[in-house]
Design a protein around this nucleic acid. Sequence first.
DNA 1: TTGTTGACCCAAG
DNA 2: TCTTGGGCCAACA
Length: 129
Amino acid sequence: MGYTRRVMDGPTFYHQVYAVVRRIPRGRVTSYGRVARMLGRPHAARAVGYALSALAQKRESAPPVPWQRVINSQGRISTPNMDGGADLQAALLRAEGVAVDENLRVDLGVYLWEGLHLLEIDDILAGRG
DNA sequence: TTGTTGACCCAAG
DNA sequence: TCTTGGGCCAACA
């Protein structure tokens, strides 16, 4: 089968996103697009952002997902600042040693996390990670 | 089953 | 640098 993801017997795309995000090392960051690519969905960046958004609402994350380590491809925090979310994210990153600009910008050349390969992700999703 | 909704990405201007 | 416009995707009503 090629494209049917209506009823996936495995983890949903969201869970796959969470699994990958949990692998981001402390003090490093990556982008939504990169996470999407790691999951074999090069164009699903928006869905990744949506997944993290849902995470913030549900507030049910055990173990917790370090969502603050995910920013956009321009190295900027794109979290809505309604709840002070963007500021919170910046604070969390700084606490990990990541230099965040006053304009909520991070130097990807320094802090970018390259990511994982598909095979490693398969292991993680299979519970061997 | 269809339409809507985003914490996106990329190429131009 | 910043702003626009078009494209892509998954979850949900």
